[in-house]
Amino acid sequence: MIEALQFEFMRNALMAGLLASLICGIMGTLVVVNRIVFLSGGIAHAAYGGIGLSFYFGWPYLVGTLGFSLAAGMGMAAVTLKAKHRADTVIGVIWAIGMAFGIILIDLTPGYNVDLMSYLFGSILTVPGTDLFIMLAMGVLIAALTIYYFQDLLAMSYDEEFAQIRGVPVKGLYFTMTAMLAVTIVMVIQVVGLILVIALLTIPPFIMEKHSKSLVQMMVGSSLLGAVFTFIGLWLAYRYDLTSGASIILVAGIGFLVSLVVDRVHPKMKNPHRSG
């Protein structure tokens, strides 16, 4: 890995992966404990509609994509708050329509053929330096917002009704969290691709959840775990000439399986002294 780091593209790839791990560690923890993995998937896929809009109207990438994802995310959050039992269906619908809308718009854009694969798996090896700065700024913003609203987010995630009774503006906070998630997804997709975003949002927090005593531990642990997966995945990709995004995800997937097996064999985190 050391000799690989003499190449700028490897250094940038590593930085991008580490930043994505940090951001996804924080937001992924909120996603997993709030059980909004499906909503995240919905935003990530609907974002493709925004990419289509950007190309068709010749807007800058971020304007179309961020605008579209935020709108889709707010719609999904509104449905989740208003009719929880219908939420998964509506999210599925927006998910599918967003994606189809994007593909049709790109079909209609004369002379341009965007590669769907680069959207799915990103291009972590060709991340330009400016994207790194955008990601860094976003990481700082997400971390700052999370720290500022931490107690409110904790209360809302654990017990929404109690939080509301204590005066936490639950609805506003839920929309804020969804907006943070939409921003995260759009920015990180651009760098590492849709599939890696979902993997980094879900796998490290899932592994950390049962070993953490607090949300902070879970966030820090998930970020570190994501970084380790990214590091190993990138090294394997470099060493054996594999697709970088996919190898990072497979490393994370192996980590996930190992954690399942370890918990099975070593169930000390399960309830040891109670029955019934």
Binding site: V33, R35, L154, S157, Y158, D159, E161, M208, E209, K210, S212, K213, S214, L215, Q217, M218
Partner: peptide, 10 residues
Amino acid sequence: VHINRRFPIT
């Protein structure tokens, strides 16, 4: 029953 039991909290 309405509370997530897996939630990491003391």
